[in-house]
Design a protein around this nucleic acid. Structure first.
Lengths: 145, 145
DNA sequence: ACACTAATTGTAAGCATTCTAATGTAATAA
DNA sequence: TTATTACATTAGAATGCTTACAATTAGTGT
């Protein structure tokens, strides 16, 4: 299932002239299989058993490469470190104020907002971002006690 | 005009048991009059002629106080430092990919999104955030040349 | 296999933000 | 008014994330 997405991503990289190194492959594979939206450090820690000599810089370098090519999105919330999301299909995020959990959800794209913003601000709008914040179901039930 | 908002803000602070110090007053006043969404450092630099001995920590401390009380919102974008917005009325932001300019715009609140997200994710949603990204009119005309 | 060039590594450096301990100051009650 | 108390400010150190750098290593096309 994700083999397909992985192969597609590798093809995209190759056609951009990017070399496929073992570390790069591992970071990409980890991101594609991740159910969460990991930080650079989480990726680094997850791969250090397989690549004991890998540098944090390598993780950051590769994330930047993936981002520039459009394979991953960088998510910046209030907390200190960025998170990375390789799901490039249109979706939004719900973020728990209590535990930080991030859940994806789908919603028809807000094209109207973009076009209204263009009229009002004079911008040439390329994309938008939206998140909802609240309490996840787990934290809700824990608070009930 | 902004005297009114300033006085309201001060009243809110007082009723929360927060003391009005000269530095605090200055940070608040600067934010209320700012047409932009300044960073902590921009506030610090803007006030250093009036308060040569003021510490950066004071700016951060006061911004946190204002934020906790709900007088300002912290905006975290991709760039390194947070920006602060004292316009608590419902509005959204358009951000220029080229020069970083931030322009406010109004749009009917996206309540539907919040309620759909609640159904799909099981979250108890408190609020949402949205931005559109693109090229501002100034950068558009500069690129034309 | 060779050569070319990009990628990785380890560490240092940069930057925004927070922490700490000492000092200062506003508000309150005696 | 004065003493007390709790909160604010200050300066600088410390933290944590991210990037820069120079040297080494290793893909890739021929």
């Amino acid at each position: 299932m994700s083999d397909h997405r992985l192969q597609d991503a590798i093809d995209t990289l190759k056609s951009s002239g990017v070399r496929i190194t073992p570390q790069r492959h591992a970071v990409l594979e980890f991101l594609l299989n991740a159910m969460t939206h990991p930080t650079a450090d989480e990726i680094y820690k997850a791969l250090e058993s397989k690549f004991p000599n890998m540098s944090v810089a390598t993780v950051y370098n590769n994330l930047r490469v993936f981002k520039d090519i459009g394979l991953v999105r960088e998510l910046t919330y209030g907390d200190s470190s960025s998170r990375f999301d390789c799901n490039t299909s249109d979706h939004y995020h719900a973020i728990c104020n209590n535990c930080g959990k991030i859940v994806d959800f789908h919603y028809p794209s807000l094209n109207e907002v973009e076009s209204l913003a263009e009229q009002v601000t004079g911008f040439d709008v390329s994309h938008h971002r939206m998140e909802v914040y609240g309490t996840c179901s787990k934290c809700q039930s824990e608070k009930a006690h």
